[in-house]
Simulated scan of single mutants.
Amino acid sequence: MTVEGIPANVPSWREIEGIAVESTELGEPIYAWLYDGGCTFEFEYGRIQVLRQVGTMARFVLAEADESFSVTLPHGEMLETDQIHTTVDAEFEGIFMHLTEHRELAEFTDPAGFMLDADSGFYRLADWSTPEHSGH
């Protein structure tokens, strides 16, 4: 499952705990999709919330619903459902900028600690393992 374009009205990615975003139209404001190895399912309804954040780790709860669809599970069994609810722990690695015009990361969030890979548009965290950032 992938969720893209999560708008967060916070001054820094370090402050995302508690945000919640809901979409009732495909891609507005979030784009949620699932690829099961053969088919891609796009969800008109999607909700994502950050339950907890510690450093670069965040716990998300995701809920997606749409028309009925089938997914092949790893052991070959088919699951037919019209919604998915899951809790995921994910590590923050950086920010992709998907823009049609040149804009700076600072227009959207605090850019401290990021390095830009100009070829991909990915702002990667520089070195989050230093004592200054890890809290040790």
Rank of each mutant, 00 (worst) to 15 (best):
H98G: 09
E101C: 00
T86I: 14
Q83Y: 13
P111D: 12
L79P: 13
G76T: 05
T109D: 00
E91R: 15
L105F: 02
E101D: 10
E91T: 11
T109L: 01
S70A: 10
I84P: 04
H75E: 09
E104N: 05
H85Q: 14
D89H: 09
G76A: 00
S70C: 05
H102L: 06
D82N: 15
T86S: 15
A65S: 14
L79G: 04
F96G: 08
L73H: 04
S68N: 11
F96Y: 15
G76K: 04
S68I: 08
D66K: 03
F92M: 14
T100C: 08
E64P: 01
F69H: 12
T100Y: 12
P111K: 09
M78G: 01
T100W: 02
T109M: 00
S70Q: 12
T86Q: 12
L73C: 05
P111H: 06
H102P: 05
H75P: 00
L62A: 03
E77P: 04
F108S: 06
E93F: 10
D82P: 11
L105W: 00
P74D: 08
T81G: 10
E80L: 03
M97W: 07
T72C: 05
A112Y: 12
E67W: 10
H102W: 05
D89S: 12
L105D: 11
F69M: 07
D82V: 06
E80Y: 04
E67A: 11
F108V: 10
A90T: 15
R103D: 05
D89E: 15
F96H: 09
E104A: 02
M97E: 07
D110K: 10
S70D: 10
A112N: 06
V88Y: 05
L73S: 08
D110C: 10
D89A: 15
G94A: 01
L99E: 13
L73R: 11
E77S: 03
E93M: 07
T72G: 04
F96K: 03
L62R: 01
E107D: 15
H85F: 13
E80I: 11
D66T: 10
I95Y: 01
E93V: 10
L62E: 01
